[in-house]
Nucleic acid binder design. Structure first.
Lengths: 248, 248
DNA sequence: CATGAAATTGCACGTATTTGCGTAATATTT
DNA sequence: AAATATTACGCAAATACGTGCAATTTCATG
C-alpha cells in the first residue's frame, strides 16, 4: 500500500468514526505503529486531523461542507449503513438529499461500482469523491432551503431515467397521510423520483414516524422499503408491515 | 509498445484499480521503471492522475485530500474581488468552477441580486448560501477531475441561455495558442459558455500567462476581459491589450 | 531519399524517502 | 508508585527518485 493511499484511508476512517486508534490502524493496514504515528503527525501538521495520545480525532469538518452538529448523527449513520446494503454493483441509483443521504454517500464502500443520479448539491459532492461511482447531476433551479434542484426541467429529466433503486430521505410518514413534506417544489420532485424508480426505499429517523406535514408526496403503499435506526421487529412498524412495506 | 499506447494503458489501470505501482507497470509493460516514472510525471502534469512516491493514484483521491490548501490563495482573492466588481444587480451570470471562482462566490456582497448559472458543484454550493442570488444548476455527468458537469446535455442547456457575463477560470493563456486546457470534456463546455455569453471575462493567476496546454478553447480575441492579481499596467499585458483585450 | 533535429528510452550514480526496530523517555492508568 | 501503553529518536535496509548521458528511434524537411 502506498503512503498516500494509506493516509487517504486513515482520513476516511476518521471522517467515518470521528476517531481512530493507532493500534487499530496498524492491524487493519498491516504496517508498524511507527508508520501510522508518522502518518498521523504528517496529517495533523497539514490540519487534516487532530493528533492525540493513542490515535487521532476528526476536526469535525469534512471538506468544505461543515458537518456542524448533525441532529442524531449516530442514528443517521445506522440508517445510512442499512441503505448501503441495498446497493449492488452496476445499479442505477436515484437519491434525494438530506443529511442521512450524505452520511450514506460517505459510507459507500470503495469497491462499489454504480451510477448515482441526484439533484442534491452536497450529495453529488460526496458521490464525486468516490473513485468508482459515476455521478449524473439533475440540473435546474437550486432550492435554497433544501439544497436540491427543483422545477420542471429537473422533473422532466427524472422522468427520462429508469433507476433500479430510489433512496429518499423523508420528513414525515404515517399510515393515514402517507409520506408528507412541507415544501411544494420539493414534493413535486420527490413524487417524480418515486414514480420512475423500480423500487423505492425511504430513510428516516424513528422520531418522524407517525408524524405528518402539510403536503402529501405519496401513500405508504407506493414505496417499498422503510429504513430507520430501529430494529425491524419493533412494534411501531406493525401497521406499516401489514400494508406491505418491508422494514429494515 | 508506443508511448501513447503505454500511457493509455496506465490510465486504464488507474481507472480500474484506483492506483498503480511503478514497479508493477514496469513488469507488465516490460519497460524500465524510469520510463514509467516519466510517463506518470507527464500524466500528472496534465492532471490525468496524481503522482505519489512509488506509483500514482486516481484523480478522485486528490479532491478529498489536497483540498484544504488552495494554491496562491491571496492572489486568487484579489482576482475574485476584481471579478465581483463586474457583476451588477439583475445580471445573468454564467460561471465555471475552480478555486478562484469559489473564492469569488464567497465574496459576493449580500445586497447583490443576480441569477447565477453554473455546472460546478462547489461553486453552486457557495452561491446557494447567498440570500439574494438565484442559482440554476446545469446538470449532466460530473467530471471527477474538475468537479463540473460535462457532456451533451450540459452543453445543450448552456446554449439555451443568454447570460450577460461569463466568468471563466482558465489554466493557460498565451497570444499564439489562445486559451488552452488539458481536459477534452471541459474544453467543450467552456467553448459553449464563451459562445453564448454577451461578454466573457477570464480569470487566472499571472503564473499561467504565456503558458499553454494541449487543447485549445478559443483565441484570445474571443474573450473580452482578462483578470489577474497584477496591476493592469504591467508590461506582460501589452500584447494582449493590443489585441483588444481589456485587462483589470 | 537523405539528413539533421527532436523525441524516446535505458543505464549509472548519487540522493532522498520510507519503513521497521531497538532503546530510552514520557504519558496514562491502576 | 508501579505497571502498562504510547511516543520520540536514531539507525539501517530497502526502495524510489532525479539527473546527466549515450544509444536508438522517429519525424520533418529539404
Amino acid at each position: 500500500m502506498l503512503k498516500r493511499e494509506r493516509q487517504a484511508y486513515i482520513l476516511k476512517q476518521i471522517n467515518l468514526h470521528n476517531r481512530v486508534l493507532s493500534s487499530d490502524l496498524s492491524l487493519e493496514i498491516n504496517v508498524s505503529e511507527d508508520t501510522i504515528r508518522r502518518d498521523l503527525i504528517e496529517l495533523s501538521e497539514s490540519d487534516k486531523l487532530i493528533k492525540v495520545h493513542g490515535g487521532a480525532l476528526s476536526r469535525s469538518f469534512h471538506s468544505s461542507f461543515l458537518r456542524s452538529d448533525v441532529y442524531q448523527l449516530d442514528h443517521k449513520k445506522k440508517i445510512a449503513a442499512k441503505a448501503v446494503s441495498l446497493i449492488k454493483d452496476g445499479m442505477f441509483v436515484l437519491t434525494s438529499g438530506g443529511t442521512t443521504l450524505i452520511e450514506m454517500a460517505r459510507m459507500l464502500p470503495v469497491e462499489l461500482r454504480a451510477t448515482f443520479f441526484t439533484g442534491s448539491i452536497p450529495a453529488a459532492y460526496e458521490y464525486a469523491q468516490h473513485p468508482n461511482i459515476e455521478v449524473i447531476f439533475i440540473g435546474d433551479k437550486v432550492s435554497k432551503s433544501s439544497q436540491i434542484t427543483v422545477g420542471g426541467a429537473a422533473i422532466q429529466k427524472i422522468h427520462s431515467i429508469k433507476p433500479d433503486l430510489c433512496l429518499l430521505g423523508i420528513n414525515a410518514i404515517d399510515m393515514e397521510n402517507g409520506i408528507t413534506d412541507n415544501d411544494w417544489e420539493v414534493v413535486q420532485v420527490k413524487q417524480a423520483m418515486i414514480q420512475c424508480a423500480a423500487q423505492t426505499a425511504v430513510l428516516t429517523i424513528s422520531e418522524k414516524i407517525n408524524s405528518f406535514q402539510r403536503l402529501k408526496i405519496c401513500a405508504v403503499e407506493e414505496v417499498d422499503i422503510l429504513i430507520t435506526e430501529l430494529d425491524e421487529n419493533e412494534g411501531v412498524f406493525d401497521t406499516f408491515k401489514q400494508h406491505g412495506l418491508k422494514v429494515i
